[in-house]
Amino acid sequence: MTQSVATHLASGLADPVFGSQTVFRTLLDALSAPGKVFTLADDLAGAPAGLPAAAASILLTLADYETPVWLPEGYDETRRWLAFHSGAPVASSKTNAKFALMDAASPDTHLGAFNLGEDRYPDTSTTVIIVCEALSGGSPQTLRGPGIQTTTTFAPLGVHPSFWDEIAENNALFPLGVDLIFVAGSAIAGLPRTTQIAGA
């Protein structure tokens, strides 16, 4: 255990400057093309157990001492690893979080508990990283909205059924609302607050 923590503490992005640049560009692409699955380049030298490589890369790319991160229970190793590599403080509550991690299969899918922004500053809302089993093979959802030419299909696997209702409710709050990044392994897909679930 001690050795494993030490190993993880010693590993972040293999190249902090160029690694984070490529991760960021993929994130930019993902939020610009909601529902489309992208694969992150393997620039990660190591990540804590239980944290998908994509989530690790995203946090290392975006989080720092200015951005409190909210983690669900069971991510203690991630917490230590993140503090060491990014200096990001742990968010005291979901509403204080700039970034948050959430298990897609968890029955607690309530997105409204996070920071939704305020009407004059809707950009202050939380960005939530949703950990899935896979980003394909699940029940297909039809998406539309900015970034999508007509419609697109997104079928992440291992998502709690009530989650899509939460996403529809989040969209209805626009311009307030959280923004979502789905991850599985090294795959990511963006779902900003503008994306509508067709039929929802």
Partner: peptide, 27 residues
């Protein structure tokens, strides 16, 4: 200078702003 002139912390700050900007078009 760092690649791209800005230091990494500043890049992160700008990058976070860019992602939020995309999520709220025109804001």
């Amino acid at each position: 200078y760092n690649f791209g002139y800005l230091d990494e912390q500043t890049k992160r700050m700008v990058r976070r702003a860019l992602l939020k900007a995309i999520a709220i078009p025109g804001y």
